[in-house]
């Protein structure tokens, strides 16, 4: 990658956000323009290091002349566009998206921003009824498109709740927390890893992230790069170390420090962030704005830290 940008300078466009004229480079998204203006915009499926998939719809804004709301994270600004981020329609849709997600998925481990937005928009996920009980392991994986899987008890809100998938030593998949943001699929596929170990299977509410025939990871194409973990916004994909410590009640981010270093394994020079608690590495990430990694690593940088310490599985 060249350190000096070689692309020609981009043309600038004028548009209006909430009545204020903004000037952005051609190709900038509405989200970029909003951020320039300091307008706080909720997002869930968007990530700086991935192609916008615009599936969650929590970032929607009103664009004059458009019949429906448009996703700020993916829609590029056009000259003269008049954008509103503060209308009742916008606030309603954002709140409802938060409520629909919150009522169907365990979002308790989503970012602090997400929790702040839920409060700011007064989202009340429980208005749809108490959540249904977790499904049996594998039940959701067998659901067949087009075949009706109706609510046995409509006074309870159907959820994706299900047991955690633990099928390898490095990370777990807790799809009861999956908001189906597609980020892990993108990271495993064309946006980073090109391994294609996981994809979306099924349809509608029964859609889920899956390997072929829902086989365990160890017989799938997975190479344990952990890039899916790095992009997962809700803790559905999690280092086993973190998962075990949370289960044991010892996970405590307030007691953690982050040390930046360069991965020692090869000559690429990926930047690592070592998350350390009680003098032990508990997980490894990479900054998403890093030129070398864009936040993505391989199995060695991500999980090969045991030689620094021996992590006991039963650490308490």
């Amino acid at each position: 990658m060249s350190a000096v940008p070689v692309a020609p300078p981009r043309r600038l466009l004028d548009a209006e956000v909430d009545g204020v004229v903004v000037r952005v480079p051609e190709g900038a998204t509405i989200l970029d323009a909003c951020r320039d203006q300091g307008i706080d915009t909720p997002t869930m499926c968007y990530a700086d290091n991935l192609t916008p998939i615009n599936a969650c719809r929590v970032c929607v804004v009103e664009v004059e002349g458009a019949r429906t709301l448009v996703p700020a994270c993916s829609r590029t600004v056009e000259a003269g566009m008049k954008i509103r981020t503060d209308t009742d329609r916008v606030r309603h849709s954002r709140r409802l998206v938060m409520e629909l997600l919150g009522s169907s998925v365990d979002t308790s481990l989503a970012s602090s921003d997400w929790h702040r937005w839920q409060d700011e928009y007064a989202a009340a996920p429980d208005r749809f009824g108490a959540p249904t009980d977790p499904m049996e392991a594998g039940e959701r994986d067998r659901r067949w498109a087009g075949h009706h899987h109706g609510s046995p008890d409509p006074s309870r809100a159907e959820t994706v709740s299900q047991p955690v998938k633990v099928d390898n030593e490095l990370y777990v998949r807790d799809y009861g927390r999956c908001v189906l943001c597609y980020k892990c699929v993108e990271a495993c596929g064309t946006d980073a890893q090109h391994t294609f170990a996981i994809a979306v299977a099924g349809r509608g509410f029964d859609a889920r992230i899956s390997t072929e025939y829902a086989v365990p990871l160890d017989v799938s194409a997975c190479v344990y790069c952990g890039n899916c973990i790095g992009v997962c916004p809700t803790g559905a994909l999690m280092f086993s170390s973190e998962h075990d410590m949370r289960a044991a009640g010892t996970w405590d981010e307030d007691r953690q420090t982050v040390t930046n270093t360069i991965c020692p394994y090869c000559g690429v020079g990926c930047e690592l962030e070592l998350h350390v608690q009680d003098n032990a590495i508990v997980k490894v990430t990479s900054p998403t704005d890093n030129d070398v990694t864009s936040g993505h690593l391989c199995i060695k940088g991500r999980f090969g830290f045991q030689y620094v310490q021996r992590r006991k599985k039963d650490r308490t």
Binding site: N54, A55, C56, R57, V58, S93, L96, V97, L100, L101, S103, S104, G146, H147, H148, V179, L180, V200, G202, R203, G204, F205, D206, A207
Partner: peptide, 13 residues
């Protein structure tokens, strides 16, 4: 409900 592709939250849920 049966025919939603499941991609976006407003329709899927």
């Amino acid at each position: 409900r049966d025919e939603s592709c499941g991609q976006c939250v407003p329709c899927r849920v």
